[in-house]
Amino acid sequence: MSSSTHDDGHDHPEWLAHHFETPEQQFEAGKFGMWVFLVTEVLFFSGLFCAYTYYRGNHPDMFLDAHFFLSTKMGAINTAVLILSSFTMATAVRNAQMENRVWLIRNLVITIACAIGFLVVKAFEYSHKFHMGLKWGTFYNPNEHALEAYNEATGRHLTDLSQLPDLHQFFSIYYCMTGLHGVHVVLGIVAISLLLRRAIRGDFNRYYFTAVDGVGLYWHLVDLIWIFLFPLMYLIH
């Protein structure tokens, strides 16, 4: 073996952990680890997608009726916001690689802003549904606002709350899936903020940008999951 001296410290930059032989090995390990982690994330969500498939298969009408209560416009805005944030995140990775610290910082800030914007829109959607009493499972209790919204969306003239379809399972799944996705957005904001701090400190260079790369991959996955959620929830016809 060639390098037998690196636990002495010299020849070993501080961003290279003691147990790695070379920067390439560290980078490869970090990137591979991130991919494996993303696989576990996909499988984590896959449980919910299975539940979605199962209940949609058993109750197709419920899912069809439910989309009358979801605002396609807000969903579409959020989709656009997340796609933009994915783009700025990808650019940030490139900036880190190119050692362009100013643009790295700018892109990270835009990404965080988009993520917060997404959550704000989501909060509006949630509060609107709560207002109509469209909560999950046992708390599902639509009121006259829901009746109004349903009549408006369908052009029907229902007068009694009991005529509304029972959608409690749809909303259980809706809140679980979008809620878990929202938690991931929050975690993403935390992770990108930490990156931002390190970027301002000037931690990244052409040899070491593993962290930016890893968080970038994570953020793309969060985006991708939303790309699936949007049509599955909002665009059922």
């Binding site: 539940a51 199962y54 209940y55 499972g137 046992t138 399972q169």
Partner: peptide, 13 residues
């Protein structure tokens, strides 16, 4: 919170 996904009382399986 009573989702009704696994609990048969609220339509779960």
């Amino acid at each position: 919170a009573g989702l009704g996904i696994f609990n048969s009382e609220f339509g779960g399986d």
